[in-house]
């Protein structure tokens, strides 16, 4: 499920209520029947959270120690820890990085280390709070690819300003001024100019070009170019 909306709309507040980082003033959250406000530690074993800036979360001198940090706190036996750390590092594509120092990594690599540190705890829910906003295009691709791989295996809540990251989501929750203003599929959201405008959302450039040209909402520049060629009757297509 994607979570979108303007700055100050309530995205980060909402996701922080779900693992007890914030407590509601009224009402209650329930995660697998448990209340994160009163049982945060139980809930956090099921709900892993990835933040915007990986630099704020990486603490250990070596990558493998950082990934193992959560397990150490849980007192997991050494042998099991080794196995689980190796699995988590493989899942994010960082096998071989065990003895690297976090500060020598790129932004995308750091964010994947942070993701491994969460996966190693085997959470059932993954909360991503703008996990790519500090990354360049390559780093963003790396992280999103790993997240996509976890689909079906984990429940994922993904807060972002980049609508294109949610094109494959099952649902998108729109938050504005602290209220849910829509709960729709990405396709319906992308096609609804009024809903986008009211919630200070805008389509990424390729989708916007397609929408403004009255063409189907193709996601990549190459797909849009192919569509344009088809429209103007040039069947050759784009190589």
């Amino acid at each position: 499920m994607g979570v979108v909306g303007p700055n100050g709309g309530g995205k980060s507040t909402l996701v922080r209520l779900l693992n007890g980082l914030l407590k509601p003033d009224a009402g209650a959250a329930r995660v697998y029947g448990r209340n994160p406000a009163t049982e945060p530690f139980e809930v956090r074993r099921k709900v892993g959270m990835l933040f915007q800036n990986p630099d704020n979360g990486l603490v250990a001198p070596f990558v493998e120690d950082d990934v193992a940090f959560g397990l150490e706190n849980l007192g997991v036996p050494r042998e099991e820890m080794r196995v689980r750390v190796a699995q988590a590092m493989r899942a994010v594509g960082l096998s071989g990085y065990e003895r690297r120092e976090p500060h020598t990594l790129s932004g995308g690599e750091k964010q994947r280390v942070a993701l491994a540190g969460i996966l190693v705890l085997e959470p059932e829910v993954l909360i991503l709070d703008e996990p790519t906003s500090m990354l360049d295009a390559a780093g963003r691709r790396e992280v999103l690819e790993k997240v996509r791989y976890l689909r079906g295996e984990k429940t994922i809540l993904h807060a972002t300003h980049h609508l294109e990251e949610l094109a494959d989501a099952d649902r998108v929750l729109v938050l504005n001024d602290g209220e849910v203003t829509a709960d729709v599929t990405p396709d319906r959201l992308f096609a609804n100019a009024g809903l986008l405008r009211e919630n200070r959302l805008s389509l990424p450039p390729v989708l916007r070009l397609a929408a403004d040209l009255g063409l189907p909402l193709h996601r990549t520049p190459e797909d849009l170019a192919t569509e344009i060629l088809a429209e103007i009757g040039d069947g050759a297509g784009v190589p």
């Binding site: 990424p204 450039p205 916007r208 520049p221 849009l224 170019a225 192919t226 060629l229 784009v238």
Partner: peptide
């Protein structure tokens, strides 16, 4: 390049009349 340029670049030589627009 930005997405706008990549769309036009992908149309490539087929449509030389497009010029080289950069802004949306």
């Amino acid at each position: 390049a930005p997405a706008t340029v990549r769309v036009v670049a992908a149309l490539g030589n087929i449509c030389p009349g497009l010029g080289r627009p950069v802004r949306f």
